[in-house]
Amino acid sequence: MSFEQVEHTHPRLKGFEAFYARELEPFLVEQEALRVAAQSKLKLYSLISLPSAAFGLGLVYLLGGFDGGWIGWVVAAVIVIVTLGVLAYATAGVAEVKKHVKEELMTRVCGFLGFTFNAEPLSAQLEWFRSIGLVPSYDRKSLEDEIDGSHDDVHFTLCEAHLEERRTRRDSDGRTETYYVTVFRGLLARFTFPKPFNTRTVLHRDGGMIGNFFGGIGKGGQRVRLEDPRFEKMFEVFSDDQIEARYLLTPTFMERVVELADIVGGRLQLAFDSNQLLLTVGGGKDRFESGSMFSRVDDPEMVAKIVREIGIVFQIVESLRLNLKTRI
């Protein structure tokens, strides 16, 4: 997708092509040169360290270092550790360039749109999402890429979250092994909501008849059954107040939520709480990334992809008409 096409995806992106040429391209070209240099260094270190390590280990083997005693094993361990250290040092150079490019690119693109970017958000908001049940319980968390700003007078904050749960298993020797499984990876977002409300209403993904029965246990509030069959097929609504839930979820708003679920394509869940609309989009997609370690950083398509991903904010605000003063 060319930047001319990107500009046409939303009025707020008007002038992005010129911005790219003026602000982003020179920076990315410069960073690409640094990445290539770091990558060459990695190649060189690999070419020296890996054969050297193989030679060293082979020598230890030929000299009978593994046949008895511990000296051979210690030497082998030192060779492996030194080799891994050299490779880690050389890899860090490439990773550092990629990290710098991503942060600077996000900061500049967000700045163009009037938003602010924070690579390492505070985790205080996460507990809010968890207490409402929009994300599951977790033992390990990682938050990144927080974007904060306003669109059409609707203030928003969004970030990416990766949540993992700790599990243990026993192998055949009876040893206990701890490992982590991903329980949520996706976007967390909150928006100011035009209607005032006092209670909490949560829209969980529909889990089918059995899933809803067991899933409903422990969820706060009463189940709210609504008239829109498409909406009911997608979501299971719980609220502290049957009437306020319907005040917020008008037939028109339900249609918009269904449309948004189609657009974002992930596992969309919403909640109305403390005069804010909270929203999660699960589905495992890692957004706002500048590609793999060995991909070019001056690829215009990578920039276009990031811009399109930030555009989810416009899609949410405009699909749900959060900017409507009529509060319908």
Binding site: E227, I243, R246, Y247, T250, R327
Partner: peptide, 17 residues
């Protein structure tokens, strides 16, 4: 009045359900 009608409409939907 519009705000109140919004609440009445929500209450009406709950009642009808």
């Amino acid at each position: 009045y519009s705000e109140v009608e919004g609440h009445i409409s929500a209450a009406r939907r709950f009642y009808n359900a």
